[in-house]
Amino acid sequence: MGHSKAFHPSYDKEGIKELQSNPALAIEKIMDMYGDEIKRLVFAYLKNAADTDDVTQEVFVTIYQKLNTFQGNSTLKSWIYSIAINKCKDYLRSWHARNKRLREKLITSSHTQKKEEITPEELTLQKDHSSELLQTVMNLPIKYREVIILFYFKDLSTKEISEVLNMNEATVRTRLNRGRLKLKDSLSAEKGGVNHG
């Protein structure tokens, strides 16, 4: 199944104006074009299906609210990504998310039957050996995980990532390198662990 670029038409100034002239229609188009993609990105940050729904919805509401402020200085995709990423980070640092994480920690440590609550999305991340690398990516600290996902899975250039994450391009490259090294280390450590075990 190809991941066609035709799915992501780039908008020129006129196209953006047209979108901005009818926000209600625009948000429908944007949801069609970016719905799955943004939801997957949000999931990559939150790693939790229930919260992913809420936060993704918030992303599109924010896009609707801010559409008329979009100047077209970056691509529409970068702009939408930066909104989504900021929403995810806001959420992760919120009290709600924190409490939830703490609760989950408590639940896990008290050996209650957490497995029953696992969603298909989460299950995919756990199911078989083919996902070992993906699991390792998803377990990276967020600052490495995000650049790996944006670069390798979302096809953003380091320049685009620097715009989306509002950071220096050199930092993006450093994090990509370190992220790759961390992945290597984690994978070899796991293999070592299995052999020893």
Partner: peptide, 23 residues
Amino acid sequence: LHDLKDEFNNIPISFSDTNRKAV
């Protein structure tokens, strides 16, 4: 990592009609 892209995109996630309605 490049090869992993398809696997990432196959995580069963879709922006459903329920999501749209909620928005």
